[in-house]
């Protein structure tokens, strides 16, 4: 079996295993897994409205996945996507609300603000990693909580004691009447194009730019990159900043497209953590992220149909997603298994 085939098979097997174990969980809990998965399917593809909402859900997942994947390529684990997304959400919501500008300036400005906020949130762990060798995983986790509490406090300031910011101006909105009518008045917005454009940007940086070459080199072998004359420190910081910017844009999807404002939150959105799964499943490639995001976005949105149609708690999908991450993490053992099967066939 070729390495390439195995690389594709590992995530596929993980997804199948995840869905299978999910079915077992449903069976053991006294639910009908077939009815459950049919309800899930209909929730995703049932009608044009569902499809519109599913695509809408996929946009932030693409950006969160890109953020995790981009950092991964430089050998960094950015668990802070969640926090970067939250500050991006707030920045976009604030700029969208507070300024009055023509659309052609306002919308890009709001997107830029989100990217900048996320980038700053990524800069801090990047700098600490580059200069003081502080492990980015712990710092980004802590930055997540700082983002959550800080943004909650800022929302209260902006909303003068209230719990949500005012709606953004129309000039900053990603909402689209055309896309909405096309999908039976779903909340589908232009964000998906922003997300896909960023997929292209990531591909372009990694495959067509000197910067991307250096970033990947640092990811493959820090020392070799150093000896080749690249600045490891600069690349670590750059990777975290760009990764944070992707995540911040993910927040902008929610601020400028889906919700149009931001409310104080008791906990995380979960999008950032699911971004880890998206990136892992997509093998940290731009195109892979699109597939991963499509899967998780669909699962997340389709799950809403499960309580009504099959009377199954929505959390079953979270269980399935967590299991898929777990199985992808155990990729080594799946790989070993596949290689054994391959060898047995050759022997015969």
């Amino acid at each position: 079996m070729s390495n390439r085939l195995i690389n594709v098979l590992v995530p596929v097997i993980s997804i199948i295993l995840g869905l299978l174990v999910g079915a077992v969980v449903m069976l053991v809990s006294g639910y009908d897994p077939i009815a459950g998965y049919i309800a899930l399917w209909n929730g995703i593809f049932g009608d044009s409205y569902a499809i519109g909402e599913t695509i809408r859900q996929i946009s932030p997942y693409i950006l969160a996945g890109l953020a995790v994947a981009f950092a991964f390529r430089t050998g960094l684990f950015n668990i802070g996507v969640e926090g970067q997304l939250i500050v991006g959400w707030f920045a976009a919501a604030y700029v969208g609300m507070a300024f009055e500008l023509p659309k052609i300036i306002h919308l890009p400005l709001a997107l830029l603000a989100a990217a900048a906020a996320g980038a700053i949130w990524g800069l801090i762990p990047g700098l600490l990693k580059a200069t003081l060798k502080v492990h980015e995983v712990i710092v980004t986790i802590m930055m997540n909580y700082i983002a959550l509490h800080l943004v909650n406090a800022l929302i209260k300031v902006v909303a003068k004691g209230g719990f949500k910011t005012d709606k953004i101006q129309d000039t900053a909105s990603l909402r689209s009447d055309f896309l909405s009518e096309l999908t039976d008045f779903s909340t589908l917005h232009y964000g998906i194009f922003v997300a896909l454009f960023m997929v292209f940007i990531m591909w372009f940086i990694l495959e067509r730019m000197k910067l991307g070459y250096e970033l990947k080199s640092v990811g493959f072998n820090e020392n070799a990159a150093q000896y080749a004359g690249m600045s490891v420190k600069k690349n670590i910081v750059m990777a975290m900043v760009i990764s944070g910017a992707f995540a911040g844009l993910g927040g902008a999807m929610e601020a400028l497209g889906t919700f149009g404002n931001m409310s104080t939150r008791a906990g995380f959105t979960g999008i950032g953590f699911d971004g880890i799964a998206v990136a892992l499943l997509g093998a940290n490639t731009p195109l892979g992220v699109v597939f991963g995001a499509s899967l998780f976005g669909s699962l997340k949105y389709g799950a809403n149909n499960m309580p009504n149609a099959a009377n199954i708690p929505i959390e079953i999908v979270s269980i399935v997603i967590a299991l898929i991450i777990f199985f992808v993490a155990c990729g080594y053992i799946i790989r070993v298994g596949l290689q054994r099967i391959g060898k047995n066939k050759e022997a015969k």
Binding site: I79, I276, I321
Partner: peptide, 18 residues
């Protein structure tokens, strides 16, 4: 780290499901 993240997601999902 990835396995730990999966444990976190799985813990809350199983608990809320139940």
């Amino acid at each position: 780290v990835v396995s730990g993240v999966a444990i976190n997601l799985l813990g809350i999902a199983i608990a809320l499901f139940s």
